[in-house]
């Protein structure tokens, strides 16, 4: 992966904040103020994004929004192509997901394979009444018939480029970076 210094920022911290705030408003609008929303982030950065959107949505709706995390490692379709990986944390909020509106949250939507794995993982945990998808960046190049319901930024990229989302919870500061693939 490219060095962060060689990548150019397409979203700065303030842009990220505005995009997440807009997504929270869109979720409220599109779901007609549904009071059974559960946000599930895909680790690692999807979880931080889900927490932020959840906090904003809680302000808008005036009640706390359950936020959790959903590790998809065991459901990946490339599991057997790579070295066995450590599992990440799955935390389903108390109250579960049965009959509720689940919004999956991830940082970058690319091939769509992560989302497919997340849908499989969700099916083993319960039966939501509806599942939607929110992503900070949609960079295109889908390999499966999957689309996002809420998008922070549509970012046309070439396959030769890498997209990196940095969040203050894990990195120096909020930013979305694009750079050339190095080797």
């Amino acid at each position: 992966m490219s060095d962060a210094s060689e990548m150019r920022a397409v979203l700065e911290a303030a842009d990220v904040a505005r995009a997440l705030s807009r997504i929270a408003h869109e979720i409220d609008e599109r779901t007609k103020g549904a009071d059974d929303i559960v946000l599930l982030g895909v680790p690692t950065r999807g979880v931080a994004l889900a927490r932020r959107i959840g906090a904003r949505l809680a302000e808008i709706q005036g009640h706390p929004i359950p936020v959790g995390s959903l590790d998809i490692t065991m459901y990946r379709d490339d599991l057997r192509l790579k070295k066995a990986r450590a599992l990440l944390h799955t935390e389903i909020p108390t109250g579960g997901i049965d009959g509720r509106l689940v919004v999956l949250v991830d940082d970058v939507l690319f091939s769509g394979r992560t989302v497919r794995a997340a849908l499989d993982a969700l099916g083993d945990i319960g039966r939501p009444r509806m599942v939607q998808l929110a992503v900070l960046v949609d960079r295109g190049h889908r390999e499966l018939p999957i689309r996002a319901d809420y998008v922070g930024k549509n970012l046309p990229t070439s396959l030769r480029e890498t997209v990196r989302v940095q969040l203050a919870e894990h990195d120096a500061e909020d930013a979305v970076l694009v750079g050339a693939v190095t080797a």
């Binding site: 065991m74 599991l79 070295k83 066995a84």
Partner: peptide, 16 residues
């Protein structure tokens, strides 16, 4: 079993 069999190579130890 997951770490030994789940991937293309074992997740335990530096070398497969």
């Amino acid at each position: 079993m997951y770490l030994l069999l789940g991937g293309a190579e074992s997740g335990i130890g530096g070398i497969a």
